[in-house]
Every structure is written in C-alpha cells, then in structure tokens.
C-alpha cells in the first residue's frame, strides 16, 4: 500500500500526523510529508484513519 498526498489540496491542518502518527509526518510548514511512502501491512489500518480524518480529503491510498 502506497500513500498519495495531493499537495494542491493539503493545507496543513496536521490531523493525519496527530491521529495516525506512525504513518504520517509533517514538513516544516505543517504539510503532509509522506507522499509515495510504502505502508507495511501492520500500519495499513492506521494509514486509513489518516485518510478519513483529513478535512481536505487530500490523502489517498493505492495498492
């Protein structure tokens, strides 16, 4: 599973990094910094939580 972050949509709310801290980290300006990251199976559920809490719907997961 791979994380896809739409940089045009991400505004830096930072909710992903709070609710799913083992998957998502933020850059210096608070934007999601893990575009393209491969998620190990044991963190897939946490990765989904990050997708669900994003107010901008900027995060997607690809197989």
């Amino acid at each position: 599973m791979i994380v896809k972050v739409d940089a045009a949509r991400c505004q830096g709310h930072g909710r992903c990094a709070v609710e799913a801290a083992r998957v998502y980290t933020l850059d210096a300006e608070g934007h999601c910094a893990v575009n393209g990251r491969t998620i190990p199976p044991e963190l897939e559920e946490e990765a989904r939580i990050g997708v669900e809490v994003c107010p901008e719907r900027a995060i997607a997961l690809e197989p």
Partner: peptide, 10 residues
C-alpha cells in the same frame, strides 16, 4: 474511529 470535520474551516 475517525473524526473529520470543518469546525476550523477548510
């Protein structure tokens, strides 16, 4: 399980 909202705007 996951709380998403717009209370702080988008």
């Amino acid at each position: 399980r996951a709380v998403r909202h717009m209370a702080f705007g988008v």
